[in-house]
Design a protein around this nucleic acid. Structure first.
Lengths: 345, 345
DNA sequence: TAAAATTGGGCAATCGTTCCCGAAGCTTTA
DNA sequence: TAAAGCTTCGGGAACGATTGCCCAATTTTA
């Protein structure tokens, strides 16, 4: 098997005790300059590397953090995970990623698993199905650091990293309105999620500002966030079947936005002539779609980074944290062809 | 801090020794049925979970595997990593991902880092710059299990997971030829990489089969795999400046393929009318590009899965492995608009 | 009825590291 | 000159779990 030198090997080779080696290497204690030199040089020579497992055992830390997201095959989350990994890697933490696939039951199982792996903290974006968050509250009270990101929980007082969903949705909807669309439908995620409700409110507020009366038929739910392709197809078909068919679509998340285009094409609907499209997505290719997509883009990478920085700081803080931070990032609204004016002004 | 019950806590609470608890829980030893019941029920009650760190320390295993890729922000690698994670997660392994950004020096540093983390094995896809692979040979000889995937090393006898690059490139090139293109350029990655050379050979063989003489000017190298946007722009501009400008492009990897379209558009080149395009990419959105892209698609997820399965089997095998497996996956050639016929037949 | 076998469970070493407590040997001070 | 202080280092107990070895009590066997 692959074995490396331990502190004990060095002690034996140099005729010193393990404590001396440890201290000489850490430089934390009064050890003779000669001994320090001897030890460090020998350690260098044999390529000594402290065993992180032993360190963890002593320090009562696993040096791993658990991540809960709905799925990684999602532009937003894959970018966020990138940010998470980058910070964790540089701070010497493992990242254990779990996917809920929008199921509350799987979320529970995942938390169980992460706990059994003795994670030092949790980075959580709720599943669409989750309504009972009491176990997060319990974990928090037991002292487990938790940072919610993107899909946060309003009820639990802990760190939160997300965006101004109301404003982002408001602006995107208003862009469609300003481009001449009046019959704007909204495909949203489960109303369990705060972000769905906030985005819906932004949409409604934009309609109201421009004196467009809200049509209940124009609001369609994909309770699994569009993860099930069938679900999104049904949603779109419902809208298309409406006697007063909408002329624009505002979509609430990554899966739904990128999923719409193929479905509309399959139905022979031209974008944006028959149906305009604007929505949340972090796809790097939105510009190269046919037509290019009007999107709300979140700083996913930065959000993942910040959430992880906060979590690690929280883990490594001596005293239990009393003050919780909430950070809202700015989003970017990028106007492209899919929301081009329906009418010539 | 977040603390959970240990075997010692249970022993104290039940007035038994830690060995009894351990054996009662593992069921491996002669322990009275009553005691077993008592212990298991108590453990259940307090939600006891064995500390994986302590287990690792005893077993001399970190339960982590190191991954070396050029970058994760690449459709192929992100999908492969997905496969890696899924297998590792289910087998109780951590995955530590490192990126070389095509630099040989960073690859060395990454290996150093992974070694210092005491990984149990390595999953490697070479950087474009790497030529000296002697340290992999040394690690292998020291007993560290290594699986190469995608960008394999021909010289080292260990497990390998990749595709039939020659055939995939041959077929893609032939598709362009069959569609009426005769002046086919090839943008390739560094010739350090075996996969670049194999794909180049496939391209050349297809030309030869159809009696098209190879023009050296039509072969352009992006030595950093198109990771530097400037590099790819230069490559394309060189081709466009040619007196006898090519009418089709065959591209060797994910970054280069998806990078071409925006650059060509910026130069006012129409695809496929002015320049056809076919190349390797695993983008899920290739179909929705304008124009839709003709691609060679690799089973990235499955490749990641298989590589990890082989690695973990290798790690957990009692005896050092003598037999090394080499697995070549089938690729998929998907014909779309970007390679549509230049001439009406 | 005494010896042997079986059953049930404890002791202590081990993994690699840190860190509290001494313990020498030397120098300084009163 | 002896006590006190400083420097430099070692012993050994943790951390949480496993496991070989041993021991006591009970049951079986001769």
């Amino acid at each position: 098997m692959f074995q490396s030198y331990t502190i004990k090997d060095i002690a034996k080779a140099l005729g010193l005790s393990t404590s001396t080696i440890s201290r000489a290497l850490s430089g934390s204690y009064k050890i003779g300059a000669n001994t320090v030199k001897l030890v460090t040089e020998y350690a260098e020579k044999v390529n000594y590397r402290p065993n992180p497992i032993a360190l963890s055992l002593k320090a009562h830390k696993s040096h791993s953090i658990g991540v809960v997201v709905c799925e990684v095959a999602n532009n937003y989350f894959s970018q966020a995970i990138n940010g998470i990994e980058s910070v964790a890697y540089n701070s010497g933490y493992h990242v254990i990623i779990t996917q809920t696939h929008e199921s509350a039951a799987r979320e529970q199982v995942n938390i169980e698993h992460l706990l059994s792996r003795h994670v030092d903290g949790l980075l959580v974006s709720l599943s669409a199905e989750t309504t009972d968050v009491s176990f997060y509250q319990e974990l928090k009270e037991k002292g487990l650091p938790i940072v919610f990101f993107d899909r946060i929980v309003p009820g639990i007082d802990t760190h939160k990293v997300y965006i101004d969903n109301f404003k982002a949705a408001f602006d995107a909807t208003e862009l469609l309105i300003n481009n001449g669309f009046k019959k704007i439908a909204h495909i949203t995620n489960s109303s369990n999620l705060l972000i769905s409700r906030e985005r819906l409110n932004g949409y409604l507020a934009a309609l109201e500002k421009h004196q467009i009366t809200f049509d209940q038929d124009y609001l369609v739910y994909c309770d699994h966030g569009g993860m099930l392709i069938h679900e999104l197809e049904t949603a779109i078909d419902e809208l298309l079947a409406l006697p007063n068919r909408p002329d624009a679509l505002f979509t609430t998340n990554d899966r739904i936005t990128t999923g719409c285009l193929p479905i509309l094409k399959k139905r022979g609907i031209k974008v944006p002539d028959d149906m305009a499209l604007a929505g949340f997505t972090n796809s790097d290719f939105a510009e190269w779609f046919a037509p290019s997509l009007t999107v709300v883009r979140q700083p996913a990478f930065e959000m993942g980074k910040l959430a992880t920085e906060i979590l690690i700081k929280s883990i490594e803080s001596k005293r239990p944290i009393e003050e919780y931070t909430t950070h809202q990032f700015e989003t970017e609204l990028i106007s492209r062809s899919s929301s081009a004016s329906a009418i010539a002004f």
